[in-house]
Computed example of a mutant assay.
Amino acid sequence: MKCIVGLGNPGKKYEDTRHNVGFMVIDELLNRHNWNLDKKKFNGQYAMEHYQGDKLILLKPQTYMNLSGESIRPLMDFYNIDLEDLLIIYDDLDLPAGKIRLRQKGGHGGHNGVRSSIDHLGTKEFKRIRIGIGRPVTSIPVVDYVLGSFPKEQQGDVGESIKLAADACETWLNTPFVDVMNEYNN
C-alpha cells in the first residue's frame, strides 16, 4: 500500500493559500479519479482507493501545518505502511512559483510541516515533492506570505505545477521513484 500526503492547513480561510499547495495536489488527484476523502481518523481526512490494482491512501492532515506528523505517523502505523511507500507533497519558498522538485530524502529546510513529519517519523528519508511558491519580493513577513494567495500572474504556472506534481504521483505508483525523479526534475 502506498500513501500520498499533501501538507496544508484545514479550513476555508487557508484554502487557496501558498502553504496549501500540498492539499491542492491531493484535490487534483481526487478530481481526476472521482475519489473522495471519505474517512476521518488520525487527525486527518483520507481516501483509501485502488489504482491499477494497488491500494493507495491519499491523506490531508487536519492538524494544521506545524503538527502534520501527528496525523501521518498514526495512519502509517495503523495501516502498516513502510517509509518506502510514503510520498509527502509541500510548498517550498526556495523554488520559483510553478516549479517542482522531487527528492528521496532531505532536511526540513525551515518548513514546519516537514519538520513535524521528520520528528514523528524519526527519519529524513522519505520521498517528497516540493512545489515552488517563490520568496516574497517585498518586506512581507514569511508567515504572512505563505498564508497569502497566489497573485493572478502566478496562478497559471502554479496550476500547471500542481497538475505536474499529480502526474508525478501517478507515475510513482507503478515506477521506481528514481525514474520518476529523472523524468520530472528536468
Results as ranks from 00 to 15, higher is better:
residue 173 L to C: 09
residue 135 R to Q: 14
residue 18 R to G: 06
residue 63 T to Q: 08
residue 152 K to P: 01
residue 19 H to V: 10
residue 123 T to F: 09
residue 44 G to S: 12
residue 174 N to E: 11
residue 106 G to Y: 11
residue 39 K to E: 13
residue 25 V to H: 05
residue 183 E to R: 15
residue 108 H to G: 06
residue 141 P to I: 06
residue 10 P to F: 01
residue 81 I to R: 10
residue 131 I to R: 06
residue 111 H to T: 07
residue 167 D to A: 08
residue 158 V to R: 02
residue 52 Q to W: 03
residue 77 D to A: 11
residue 133 I to F: 11
residue 71 S to P: 11
residue 161 S to P: 05
residue 121 L to Y: 05
residue 109 G to V: 11
residue 158 V to N: 02
residue 93 L to N: 12
residue 20 N to L: 07
residue 180 V to K: 13
residue 69 G to S: 04
residue 159 G to F: 00
residue 73 R to N: 07
residue 182 N to V: 12
residue 146 V to M: 13
residue 186 N to F: 13
residue 97 A to R: 11
residue 66 N to M: 05
residue 24 M to V: 00
residue 89 I to E: 14
residue 128 R to Y: 03
residue 48 M to K: 15
residue 60 K to V: 04
residue 87 L to R: 12
residue 181 M to G: 08
residue 25 V to P: 06
residue 159 G to T: 00
residue 129 I to E: 08
residue 121 L to E: 04
residue 129 I to F: 09
residue 23 F to I: 04
residue 175 T to Y: 10
residue 145 Y to T: 08
residue 139 S to G: 06
residue 35 W to K: 12
residue 186 N to K: 15
residue 126 F to L: 01
residue 168 A to E: 09
residue 7 L to K: 02
residue 64 Y to P: 04
residue 83 L to P: 04
residue 169 C to W: 12
residue 59 L to E: 02
residue 151 P to F: 06
residue 36 N to T: 15
residue 70 E to C: 03
residue 68 S to R: 00
residue 79 Y to N: 11
residue 122 G to Q: 01
residue 96 P to N: 15
residue 2 K to P: 05
residue 55 K to I: 00
residue 74 P to L: 10
residue 61 P to T: 12
residue 140 I to M: 15
residue 152 K to Q: 13
residue 83 L to Q: 14
residue 125 E to G: 02
residue 83 L to D: 13
residue 136 P to L: 10
residue 147 L to Y: 09
residue 105 K to Q: 14
residue 42 F to N: 03
residue 47 A to I: 12
residue 111 H to I: 09
residue 135 R to S: 12
residue 19 H to P: 07
residue 130 R to W: 03
residue 119 D to G: 02
residue 46 Y to R: 10
